[in-house]
Design a protein around this nucleic acid. Structure first.
Lengths: 235, 235
DNA sequence: CCCGTAAAAACAGTATACTGATTTTCTGAT
DNA sequence: ATCAGAAAATCAGTATACTGTTTTTACGGG
């Protein structure tokens, strides 16, 4: 596997984080330290520490039987978007002002991949390209604390994003917003980027809320008295 | 020691976090897992996991010789305040709109303690009351993600805050800004709270920058070729 | 007295082992 | 067939032990 850092915990963490970003782990899956350890040929502790870190960052929740991706309540979605609205439009505006030609090219390349994936209805590619687009413009954000915070808040939506892209209509609307932001980046107009990002935030919130609402309804319909045991919680 | 949670890691984490909030750990101190473990009569692992969590949250850095509180560069301070400026004024405005009489009383009580501590030049009490004031108004922020993010960003400044309060002039200015915010809370005027918090953010940034600049100068003057070995870093 | 080198110590990282709680599976009785 | 209860399995939490690296200290030569 990847061993960019000499540290096993970081390697496992990066691996898991990428899996989460690509929605390769569903909320019904259970991540167990021993399994991960065996899969990587290492002992439990590094795997466990990586999992614990993901819990403390809010991506996973501990259950009595392994770790699971955190499922967002409707209130979570609203709350997370309230924070995103405060940060992303402004940060994107800064990025539009400060980006280098190289970064602009990266953004455009990612946008092209997004559109191609949409055309081919290739959901995994769409997810990956979407991540690339975000990472590309975030590179132009000179404040690392800002960029890291934004990245983190976006990553909370992994579990819902899959649902958003699965619906063709929603996906198209989503990508349309993205493409308008991209155009504003190309125009190098910080204020236009800011405004379009703001609009995008509201549209995205609505999309996620409606997807999640449907998910919750379906879940309730299928199993009337379903409960998932949960333990540890990090405020 | 405190064992609010049945979990040793959480207990150690809470203990360390509180010590950090109260500036009870100086950047020259070294936190070592075995020491903490012995002090609490437990094994290394829970202590280590708590430390690792504080590292991943950005409060500590790992050195080759124990863990140390993270020292903020001037760029860090500017970057962190850029995020705070986006979040706190708006969140405080929401708090002013939504706060209950109980929370208002808590805020006022904390403000009184701040002023008493200032009068008596009781720095530890001032630090504690300052934390209380913040926690009090944050209770009125209904969005837990917003509140947690703000808390976290404020806590990054522990190491610098001590220096700010040590200087009487700076402390007085700082407390003055706080008291103006408090008055706006009492007036239950969200916009006034928002504006005063914005002003406060800029003043606080300037204060922290100047304190930190002085700290860095003094450090450089004392030991011309001082370097601190550093390892792990979490983006 | 200063510097280089070797020995010792300190510490993070990793591995393995043990424990207790919870959940699942198995068994047998009604 | 269904349910109760017991046995087994699973897994997080904790403890202890080992390893390799870096820093410090100690020693000896210049």
């Amino acid at each position: 596997m990847l061993k960019l850092s000499d540290n096993l915990v970081d390697a496992i963490y990066a691996d898991l984080r990428q899996k989460l970003q690509r929605s390769a782990v569903s909320p019904s899956d259970r991540l167990v330290d021993t399994e991960i350890a065996n899969a990587h040929g290492i002992s439990r502790m590094p795997a466990r520490e990586a999992l614990l870190r993901l819990v403390s960052e809010g991506y996973l929740v501990g259950t009595t039987r392994g770790f699971a991706v955190r499922e967002l309540s409707l209130e979570d979605i609203s709350g997370l978007f309230e924070v995103r609205r405060q940060l992303e439009p402004r940060a994107a505006a800064c990025a539009a002002r400060d980006m280098t030609p190289e970064i602009e090219a990266e953004i455009t390349a990612a946008m092209n991949r997004v559109e191609r994936a949409l055309g081919e209805s290739d959901i995994p590619a769409l997810l990956a390209a979407n991540v690339d687009f975000r990472n590309a413009w975030l590179k132009a954000v000179s404040n690392p604390h800002m960029a890291a915070t934004i990245s983190r808040f976006i990553d909370y939506f992994q579990s819902v994003r899959l649902g958003t892209f699965a619906d063709p209509g929603t996906a198209e609307l989503y990508i349309d917003g993205l493409s308008r932001i991209h155009a504003a980046f190309l125009a190098r107009d910080p204020l236009m980027v800011q405004d379009r990002m703001t609009l995008f935030m509201f549209a995205a919130e609505e999309a996620y809320l409606s997807v999640r609402r449907r998910q919750l309804q379906e879940a309730e319909a299928q199993r009337p008295a379903r409960r998932r045991t949960q333990k540890r919680g990090t405020a």
